[in-house]
């Protein structure tokens, strides 16, 4: 395990050194990603400017959700490129090289790329998050700090799991993968507002199947000390982010199954 971790960080170092050879391009892309999401938030701000609130949530409260989910995704996007771009790897046959090395396939793919340009996106997510936390005057307790960290970690696990599932699909088809964007980018769009505003089936889907609400909405309720119109308890709100971890563990099992399929068909 320690050895694997050391190797992972070596992979990361290699990836960063490679990208820094194109420094100007990396700086430009980071700024671009930051700016793209700033305009996105301007649109949200404009809606609050006109309507005041959504489902009883104010702009800073929604900004907490927005900042949380964007930070989660930005981190995942930064460390999950190996899975996200897995279709090109299967098409080119480079996955065979991964299998030819005496290390876990997941470790090799996770280490494949540490995408620096996502720092722009991460900076935007964190900036919104910090602004929200300052504007909200949350009464921090050790429990809340722990919950906050757990929520970010749970969200990263969940999104990472989605990328692993998306990569697993590549063993069967490399077409139509765009449909996975429904869960990643669609999830991002969904989770920036409280799920209580959505229709029940939709809500259930993002709580029980792809448990995005468990890493954003429920912990946010606990942080804000808001009562849940859906009736969740405080204990549930604290435990909910674990669903992200469970999702990742299940995804990794699915991945193993996919690799076995690949080894028997060699597609």
């Amino acid at each position: 395990m320690r050895n694997a971790l050391v190797l992972y960080f070596q992979y990361v170092g290699v990836s960063i050194r490679g990208q820094l050879q194109y420094r100007a391009s990396f700086v430009m892309q980071s700024i671009g990603e930051f700016w793209a999401h700033v305009t996105e938030f301007i649109a949200i701000w404009a809606l609050f400017h006109r309507f005041g609130s959504i489902g009883g949530w104010s702009l800073p409260e929604v900004a907490l959700l927005y900042g949380l989910v964007n930070t989660q995704w930005a981190i995942t996007d930064m460390i999950g490129r190996g899975f996200d771009a897995f279709d090109t790897m299967v098409k080119s046959g480079d996955f065979d090289r991964v299998l030819l090395r005496p290390r876990a396939t997941t470790l090799q793919l996770a280490g494949l790329e540490f995408t620096l340009r996502r720092l722009g996106r991460l900076a935007q997510g964190l900036a919104i998050l910090v602004w929200a936390l300052v504007a909200l005057n949350i009464l921090w307790t050790p429990g809340k700090v722990a919950l906050f960290v757990l929520a970010v970690a749970g969200g990263v696990c969940l999104f990472y799991g989605l990328l692993v599932v998306q990569a697993t699909l590549c063993f069967w088809t490399v077409e139509s993968l765009e449909i996975m964007n429904v869960f990643t980018y669609g999830g991002l769009e969904t989770a920036r507002y409280p799920v209580s505003i959505y229709r029940p089936n939709f809500r259930r889907f993002f709580t029980a199947v792809v448990p995005l609400a468990c890493v954003t909405y429920f912990p946010a309720l606990a942080l804000l000390g808001r009562a849940d119109p859906l009736g969740s308890t405080l204990v549930f709100q604290y435990a909910a982010p674990l669903a992200g971890l469970i999702f990742l563990l299940v995804s990794l099992q699915v991945w193993k199954f996919g690799v076995r399929h690949y080894q028997s068909t060699g597609s």
Partner: peptide, 8 residues
Amino acid sequence: KVLAGILV
């Protein structure tokens, strides 16, 4: 590929 262990 079979000899290399990446195909069953």
